[in-house]
Design a protein around this nucleic acid. Sequence first.
DNA 1: TACATATCTGACACAGTGTCAGAAAACGAC
DNA 2: GTCGTTTTCTGACACTGTGTCAGATATGTA
Lengths: 173, 173
Amino acid sequence: MATTSISRSAFYQYFEDIHQLMKELLDMLAEEIFAAAKPWIAGVGDPVALTHESLEGMVHVCYQRGPFLRAISDAATTDDRFEQDWSDFLGAFDDAACSRIEADQKQGLIARFEPRPVAFALNRLDAHTVIEAFGKHPRSKPEPVHEALVRIRISTLYGSEWVEKRSSNLVRT
Amino acid sequence: MATTSISRSAFYQYFEDIHQLMKELLDMLAEEIFAAAKPWIAGVGDPVALTHESLEGMVHVCYQRGPFLRAISDAATTDDRFEQDWSDFLGAFDDAACSRIEADQKQGLIARFEPRPVAFALNRLDAHTVIEAFGKHPRSKPEPVHEALVRIRISTLYGSEWVEKRSSNLVRT
DNA sequence: TACATATCTGACACAGTGTCAGAAAACGAC
DNA sequence: GTCGTTTTCTGACACTGTGTCAGATATGTA
């Protein structure tokens, strides 16, 4: 508040409390991130390419909004109510990733394993990697982060042979 | 303090401040976790088996100490000094994982990619998966978490073919 | 100008963290 | 036991962050 022109009291006329401020920021960010992740979540076509595309969008949004993302994630550790909101946000991604993995398993594209713990772990991977890499200035460069996330997700889900194939294709074109 | 028999003031005779309390807890936990992770970090032999062993130990320790781990991780988001301590702790793992990946790349066991971002991402994966899975009661079961972390790390580093091979071996024996 | 509505502010209350002088307890010598 | 010394503990205070509220100020309108 010290850096703004209005008083602390005036703030409470626009937001019920700090929790609600963070909640609205989270909702805005969630919308952007879901939109970016949509290709892999709901798209049709080569799932390896869709993974690449979704992670590219997700990394791009998080690179831009890094400090917001970090503030939101930090707030989740101090406010009991907001912790639930943050958990719901990540949980929605877990559900979506789970569904996609199950669908691809039925098509024989992904090996048969319990999807829930792997989806959970991969989502914590993405979330906390971008939070730590982009949350504080100076931020990491987005490209190496994107490449690492793509490599890990594709190796885990579709097989490591697709990682090198894809990168060599990209080099040739 | 309300749940203890001593006063708040007495606490400050044993610890300089809350930061120092968390720091000592972190140091204790770091020792346990480093010891558990040692096989893959510094061991010789089949790296796939060593990965499995290290993650088993790490998951076991974190399952037991989950609430402590979570408290420590949460403290890092509110205390500037402690944030640095936590960052150093994770950074030490990044360095160790980086070295191991580079060594295995020289031996041709791991594909040639930039090791730092992948090591960073895999460590955030492990850390925040166990924190969220084991940090709050009721805790998740450790076995599915371990299996997911093993699957992801082995697929990413040594190739996804080793995941199924290993699990089929384990079924037969 | 006068009234009504919208917006803002200072003062207060309460919780969390750290400090400090002095009280209480433990110990040792006689 | 009773001093004197050292260790340990406590209540009161100071400072910061969060939220509330009555009343002041600004804005719009007839």
